[in-house]
């Protein structure tokens, strides 16, 4: 494995349709992810459900992060430093399963996504590397 951190990180950008949770994303998304963690507590889930905007006002999030949260735009939230295990607190509070929430990031209808999984999942062929197209 590469011991050069620059080479190590550069390879991540070559994977299609994937955001690796690097230190840079962890910094960018720190408050976003900690906001998500707050939904682990039932009383916070109730406050969030009662008024998303007022609950968000307690957190130092960017306007983009707030808009993406309100829109449940999970691909955007990944781009803004969110991590899927933290974001899962948001969709769990909405009553969505991992399959339901994850399918929204693929551009597929949840029924089609479930059918793909039952048929053996998404093949890695063609989605391993952007530059090598394999």
């Amino acid at each position: 494995m590469s011991k050069d951190i620059h080479e190590y990180l550069a390879e991540f950008d070559d994977i299609p349709g994937t955001r690796i949770f690097t230190a840079a994303r962890a910094r960018q998304g720190y408050h976003l992810n900690q906001f998500c963690m707050s939904l682990m507590k039932p009383e916070n889930r109730e406050r969030w459900k009662a008024g998303e905007a007022s609950y968000l006002a307690d957190w130092p999030l960017t306007d983009e992060q707030q808009q993406a949260l309100r829109a449940r735009d999970y691909n955007r939230l990944l781009d803004l430093g969110g991590n899927i295990y933290f974001l899962s607190k948001v969709f769990s509070t909405d009553g969505l399963s991992f399959v339901q929430a994850v399918s929204t990031m693929t551009g597929m209808l949840v029924e089609d996504y479930q059918a793909m999984m039952l048929a053996g999942g998404r093949s890695p062929n063609g989605v391993r590397s952007k530059k090598d197209k394999r």
């Binding site: 691909n75 991992f98 999984m117 053996g120």
Partner: peptide
């Protein structure tokens, strides 16, 4: 084993690997 829970490539499974 193989799984991806995020992004447009979510749902990836690699039985052979």
């Amino acid at each position: 084993m193989s799984h991806q829970l995020q992004g447009p490539r979510a749902g990836l499974i690699n039985k052979e690997w």
